Amino acid sequence: MNAAHLDHVNLRIPESRVDDAVNFYRETLGFRLEDLDAYQAGDRPIFSVRLSATSIIHLSPSESFEPPEARNFDHVAIVVEETIEEVKAELGDAGVGIERESTPKGATGTAPAVYIQDPFGYRLEIKSSHAEI
């Protein structure tokens, strides 16, 4: 097999907290949502957070949601175009706390990142596409 890219990640969220997901992923982080209207109309069981032309996060509302546990989930890494200083400023302006900062090595190399949590306990690594100098 010759993989091209990671297409999507599927995260369960509490069915009763879809508004929290919309507020966090669209309003706070600024990502575009897809199929929210279809989900709300009962036509689709999920809706999606568009990260790039080739990558999305499916959000699957579930009555039986259980928060992720450290022993079976660590984080989803998202590379952004902004510098890490711009990311930290945007998160600070939005009132999002940063758990920690690091310079991890990933698929696109080593670059600065911050770690935050979404409203459901999922840790997100927000990694700058700008490598440290």
Rank of each mutant, 00 (worst) to 15 (best):
I84E: 05
A111T: 05
A53R: 13
V49G: 08
E86M: 11
E90T: 13
N23S: 14
I78T: 03
P104K: 11
R44F: 12
P61N: 10
A21S: 07
A111S: 12
S102E: 14
E69F: 10
T54G: 10
V49R: 02
I57E: 01
A94Y: 01
E66A: 13
G42A: 11
L29C: 01
Y25C: 00
G97D: 10
I116N: 04
F47K: 06
I78D: 01
E86I: 13
T108V: 08
L33E: 00
G95L: 04
L51C: 02
P104E: 03
P14K: 07
S102I: 03
R17T: 00
P45R: 11
V96F: 07
A113F: 02
R100P: 00
D35I: 02
R32E: 14
S62T: 10
A21V: 05
L91T: 01
V79I: 07
S60P: 01
F24M: 05
I13E: 00
Q40A: 09
F65C: 04
E15V: 13
I84N: 09
E15I: 13
E34H: 04
E81Y: 02
E69L: 15
L33G: 01
A70N: 09
D37P: 02
N72Y: 07
E66H: 09
D43N: 11
V18A: 09
E85A: 12
